[in-house]
């Protein structure tokens, strides 16, 4: 097994565990960023350099920053989680984990060669067979934009009234 691969997998998993157990929102965010970076490494190892870059730029860079802004606006929030409420989800997660392992282990564990897939290939695929998906995604983003703008406008009114 590839050592780098294993190491980044462990980092990703460990970081995610930290994300879901932290009390402080900012701490959780930072751990999530670490997890995302680890995932990006895994993607790189799989020959998907383009999306690894995209993961870092957009996911870790833009989306997480949005979260940071919101946390700034809201202020510190303490989400107290008592250990007892972990029981149910833990059991559920365990069951799902067992099922997952079973499904995965029933396949062959033979390693295959990894082929590098260039951004060019991705671009050709996007603007070729997946053109409609691109258009739809554009719609989606437009909708998100308009929605966020509209909600933001009401927010501005509300916040404005408080005389910030």
């Amino acid at each position: 097994m590839n050592l780098v691969y294993a190491a980044s997998a462990c980092v990703a998993i460990a970081a995610t565990v930290m994300v879901i157990t932290r009390r402080n929102a900012v701490h959780a965010l930072l751990y999530l960023v670490v997890s995302l970076l680890a995932v990006a490494v895994i993607m790189l190892l799989l020959g998907a350099a383009f999306v690894a870059a995209l993961e870092v730029i957009i996911y870790a860079g833009a989306i997480m920053v949005l979260f940071v802004f919101v946390i700034m606006l809201i202020g510190p929030s303490n989400d107290t989680v008592n250990p007892r409420s972990w029981i149910g989800p833990a059991i559920l997660a365990l069951i799902l984990l067992v099922e997952l392992v079973y499904v995965v282990a029933s396949g062959s564990a033979a390693p295959l060669a990894v082929k590098e897939i260039t951004p060019r290939q991705v671009g050709m695929a996007l603007l070729g067979p997946y053109l409609i998906g691109v258009e739809v995604t554009a719609f989606l983003l437009l909708a998100g934009l308009v929605g966020a703008f509209h909600l933001g406008r009401r927010l501005a009114v509300t916040l404005g009234r408080k005389g910030d």
Binding site: A9, A12, V39, G47, L96, L100, V104, S108, P111
Partner: peptide, 21 residues
């Protein structure tokens, strides 16, 4: 590139998903 067992990749993805859930 080195060869990577893909099942383990799926496993990692699954574990992350379950943790998120």
């Amino acid at each position: 590139m080195a060869s990577v067992p893909f099942e383990y990749g799926l496993a990692v993805a699954g574990i992350l998903f379950i943790l998120g859930l």
